[in-house]
């Protein structure tokens, strides 16, 4: 089944970052630094992937009074997202990531 949104170069960059640590929690600033994506691209892409069920967003479980900072929002790849992301990269060009990113 094709993705419910257009898979742009930015979406691929984001998915590749998730695939680099598929079971780990990721957050916006970290991904922005790693991929070079601007917030104006990053957060709408998060929303798109979350709506499609490819990633799952959860709030950090902390007591803001104790930590003296608000809870951060983490994103994690879902099993479906893992499957779909692998499909995208496998379907583009095996082993040549520059082609996958349109380079």
């Amino acid at each position: 089944m094709p993705p419910p949104f257009r898979v742009t170069r930015q979406t691929r960059l984001l998915l590749a970052e998730f695939l680099s640590n598929p079971t780990g929690d990721h957050y916006g600033f970290e991904i922005s630094k790693a991929t070079g994506l601007k917030p104006s691209t990053l957060y709408p892409t998060f929303a798109r992937l979350e709506n499609a069920g490819w990633i799952e967003g959860t709030w950090e479980r902390i007591d803001p009074d104790k930590t003296r900072r608000p809870a951060r929002r983490y994103y994690r790849l879902t099993p479906r997202g893992h499957f779909e992301a692998n499909n995208i990269f496998a379907g583009l060009h095996t082993g040549d990531m520059s082609t996958a990113f349109g380079g």
Binding site: Y27, G28, F29, P39, Y43, R69, P70, A71, R72, R73
Partner: peptide
């Protein structure tokens, strides 16, 4: 509201 909270949390840590 969700994005505002998310950005404020990132700001505190940064």
């Amino acid at each position: 509201s969700r994005l505002r909270d998310e950005w404020n949390a990132e700001l505190s840590i940064i």
